[in-house]
Design a protein around this nucleic acid. Structure first.
Length: 274
DNA sequence: AACGCGCCCTGTCCGC
DNA sequence: TGCGGACAGGGCGCGT
């Protein structure tokens, strides 16, 4: 579900809303959303009484920094939502899996219909290891066209799959991978190592553009995504190929095609994308 | 060692 | 109206 722009939107909402708040306690209704090393007892022991000193994003992960000593990291999977209790929409959540009460009386609610999401507690040391495993941030200054081209050299997987690999580039999911490839006029099936240097330059540019625009629109609500107030994003109205099988291309009117790559749909215009 | 597959789980939609 | 199958934004473990 949530890709980089959606998680970024939630992180910014929460940064403004709960930074500085102190965690009082937590309650877990669905223990299967906790990572094996982060059970209720360990979470309670290390979160209770701690101040949220920062809320940020790394790839598709939402990161809560606690007293600069621990990090609680939430990966939202396909249907995870994080909404604060002071939002009028909080009462609409029907799959609350865990909640974190704050000393100011509010709480942070984690809702997840399919329960593919995970909550995991890291020490700063453990986080450094995990952080190093994740790929580069596509919006960071050190993500350059040259680096993208270089990364693609030793991969024969279709470029759409390449873009989904969180250990190469962190934060891109199926929607934005497909949208960036459309804008860069590259077919999703093209082998990564067959991307030309101009192709890599175009893809780098369009990837950043589509992610940035989606952040401005507060994300794409395909079905489940909500921001930290429980509201929908608006980028779904700007999608050019994703979920548009058999609809006319917005550029040339050829019909958008769907192909399945490793069990996940890819969408492209057969005329615009080569 | 990179890659693809199956699976985790629930909800929704579509065809019959 | 009911039922079965396909599909959904992700990520992990496994076999090759």
């Amino acid at each position: 579900m949530p890709e980089l722009p959606e998680v970024e939107t939630i992180a910014r909402d929460l940064e403004a809303r709960v930074r500085g708040a102190i965690v009082q306690d937590l309650s877990v209704r669905r223990p299967d959303i906790l990572a094996p090393d982060s059970g209720t007892r360990r979470l309670r022991r290390n979160l209770s009484g701690r101040r949220i000193t920062d809320v940020s994003r790394r790839g598709k992960n939402l990161v809560f920094v606690l007293d600069r000593r621990f990090r609680m990291v939430i990966n939202l999977g396909m249907t995870g939502r994080v909404v604060t209790s002071d939002s009028p929409r909080a009462s609409e959540l029907v799959h609350v899996a865990a909640s974190f009460t704050l000393e100011d009386g509010r709480s942070i609610l984690y809702d997840d219909a399919r329960r593919f999401g995970r909550i995991r507690l890291f020490t700063e040391t453990a986080w450094r290891v995990r952080d190093a495993e994740l790929g580069i941030e596509p919006l960071a200054p050190d993500f350059t066209p040259e680096l993208l081209h270089h990364l693609t050299r030793r991969s024969v997987t279709p470029i759409r799959n390449f873009l989904l690999d969180q250990n190469r580039i962190a934060g891109v999911g199926n929607i934005y991978a497909n949208e960036a490839l459309f804008r860069a006029r590259i077919r999703p099936t093209r082998r990564a190592n067959r991307i030309t240097r101009p192709g890599a330059t175009a893809l780098h540019h369009e990837l950043r553009a589509v992610l940035s625009e989606a952040i401005l629109e507060r994300g794409t609500t395909f079905s489940d995504y909500r921001d930290a107030s429980g509201n929908e994003g608006a980028f779904q109205f700007r999608l050019r190929v994703y979920d548009r099988e058999a609809l006319p291309c917005t550029v040339c009117d050829h019909l958008i095609r769907r192909v399945v790559l490793t069990n996940r749909s890819a969408f492209y215009c057969p005329s615009c994308q080569r």
